[in-house]
């Protein structure tokens, strides 16, 4: 029997935005809303901790890690670009470079936390500042880790020679997420290390 289908000629060509990209942008909007609330809480609570330590006393500004994370956006962009042009060797190199830069960032965060927790005895429980600091930075770090997991999968597939230019759409979508994570860091960095310190 089959469906009684409408068949009326529509004329010109029919092209819609890719669903992967639309989905990723929607996800980024949702994530941005989560970060907005955490940032709002952080800003609201700046200087409200009744007891120390204060940010000025214990936080070291992570300049090197920040430079690494931000430049990983550039290498990511270049990697995606090379894949689109079919230069898989360049892609592989740049992608792995991105992964390494991201790893440097997360390792330096881990070392910073180690210093704070074991060196200074400063934890999420210590005071209100500790609560907001570990939550906001930790929320961002967990996104970096999620991004790194994605990057690693693609890197492994790339080394196995399974990533070709027809996959560039997917890599672009992952790149979108990575750029978002980097952009959030600019906000987190400004709030925690510039305004809040």
């Amino acid at each position: 029997m089959g469906a009684n289908v409408v068949t009326i000629p529509a004329g010109d060509s029919w092209q819609l935005p890719s669903r992967g990209r639309t989905g990723m942008i929607s996800l980024i909007v949702a994530e941005s809303a989560i970060f907005t609330i955490f940032v709002a809480a952080y800003v609201f609570y700046i200087g409200k901790s009744p007891d120390g330590p204060t940010p000025k006393q214990i936080l070291h500004v992570p300049i090197f890690a920040t430079i690494c994370l931000l430049s990983s956006s550039l290498t990511m962009h270049a990697a995606a670009d090379s894949l689109r042009r079919g230069k898989t060797a360049a892609f592989r190199l740049l992608w792995i470079l991105t992964l390494l830069l991201g790893l440097i960032f997360i390792i330096s965060t881990a070392r910073e936390w180690h210093r704070l927790i074991y060196g200074q005895g400063f934890t999420i429980e210590t005071n209100l500042f500790g609560t907001t600091y570990y939550s906001l930075v930790g929320l961002h770090a967990s996104h970096v880790i999620a991004g790194l997991a994605g990057l690693t999968i693609v890197a492994i597939l790339g080394v196995l020679g399974k990533v070709r230019s027809e996959h560039s759409e997917r890599c672009d979508i992952l790149a979108l997420y990575w750029h978002f994570v980097d952009a959030v860091w600019i906000v987190v960095f400004s709030v925690v290390y510039v305004i809040g310190r």
Partner: peptide, 16 residues
């Protein structure tokens, strides 16, 4: 985790 977001004894706010 013993945080203080909404803990008024440690400077947190319930209004937030």
């Amino acid at each position: 985790m013993g945080g203080h977001f909404f803990d008024t004894t440690a400077g947190g706010s319930v209004v937030i």
